[in-house]
Computed example of a mutant assay.
Amino acid sequence: MNFLLFAVAIAALFFVGSLILLRLGQRLGFRYRTRSDTEGTGGLATVEGAIFGLMGLLLAFTISGALQRFDDRRQLVIQEATAATTAYDRLSLFGGDDALKLQTGLKDYVRARIDLYRLAHDFLLLQRAEDFSDQQEKKVLELKNQLWDAAVAACPQPNYRPACALSLPALNSLFEVARLRAGAAEKHPPQIIYFMLFGLGLGCSLLAGFGMAASAGHSWIHMLLFAGTLTVALYIVTDMEYPRLGLIRIESFDHFLADAYDQMR
């Protein structure tokens, strides 16, 4: 499924629903004023304030969490590039053909990791996860196992033991960061949070329309701005959770790993 089209469709649905509920709330407000013969809805301000406050808090915490996860993913790209450079330098401690073989294997692994994120990938709606190329992931795993096995096989030689003491932990750190990046790509808020945001946003639209009934008429400018602001805020929260599929992306940070690969002599 195309994530961008899905996210835009949901945003458009929310925007239309918000406008409808704003208008419906206004009509209900007019009816309430007519039946109760009052000029305002001041007695309902406490309920409205509580609901709008809850919406604001939930939206603020969700945006803050999304920004934190977005930044964590960027930091992991830099960490992988640093770990790859460190591992490459320490593999040179083996010396001779063994060092060249291990460094070549590391370069192939890093190249496969770069290609994995550059290849086009899809969005799995039910799993709420990015669907990377199975063939490329299998290739990355094979290169990883080959590199590790080759490094371990060289360790029994007495003259390579100091090199192994430094190289194996560096390789392990490199592989660990790769696992952390895979986990970060699937780290999202519980699905109930999105339902709460969607539902509260529509509820606030209804209450906002109800409050507008205190005026003599209705302003489409205010209604459009209210619905549009909520729609953009909810879309940004969703888009930042998938920074390789939507409009807000982290591809600009991928050059760190590519630069590390290019610096491997």
Rank of each mutant, 00 (worst) to 15 (best):
L76Q: 14
E80T: 07
E80N: 10
R74G: 14
S92N: 13
G95F: 03
R69H: 08
Q68V: 13
Q68H: 12
G49P: 10
L57D: 02
A99D: 01
A50I: 15
G49R: 00
V47K: 01
E80L: 07
L93G: 08
T86A: 10
T46Q: 10
G49L: 00
L91E: 05
G95K: 08
D72R: 15
G49I: 01
G95R: 07
S64L: 14
L59A: 13
T86C: 00
L93I: 05
R69Q: 10
R73T: 12
M55E: 11
D72S: 13
D72L: 14
T86Q: 10
T46W: 04
G96L: 05
T62C: 00
F94R: 12
G96D: 10
T46P: 03
Q75F: 03
L76M: 03
L57I: 05
D97L: 08
I51E: 01
L58V: 09
A87E: 01
R90N: 00
R73K: 04
E48W: 13
A84M: 05
T85D: 09
I63D: 05
A84F: 10
D98Q: 14
L57Y: 08
S92F: 11
S64E: 11
T86Y: 03
I51K: 03
D72P: 02
F61Q: 06
L57Q: 02
L93H: 08
E80V: 05
I51Q: 07
F94W: 04
G96W: 02
F61I: 14
F61T: 12
Q75A: 15
A66G: 01
V47Y: 09
A87K: 03
D71K: 08
L100K: 11
G65W: 04
T46C: 10
A99I: 06
L76K: 02
S92P: 02
F61N: 06
T46D: 10
F52C: 07
G53H: 07
V47H: 02
A83D: 09
M55K: 08
D72C: 02
L93K: 04
A45R: 12
L59M: 13
I51S: 04
L54A: 15
R69V: 03
M55G: 06
A60L: 03
M55R: 08
D97G: 09
A84Y: 07
G95M: 04
L100T: 15
Q68T: 15
L58I: 09
G65V: 00
L100A: 15
L100R: 15
L59D: 02
A81M: 06
A87F: 07
V77D: 01
Q68W: 11
T82Y: 10
A83V: 07
A60V: 03
A50Q: 07
D72N: 15
F94Q: 06
L100E: 14
F70K: 03
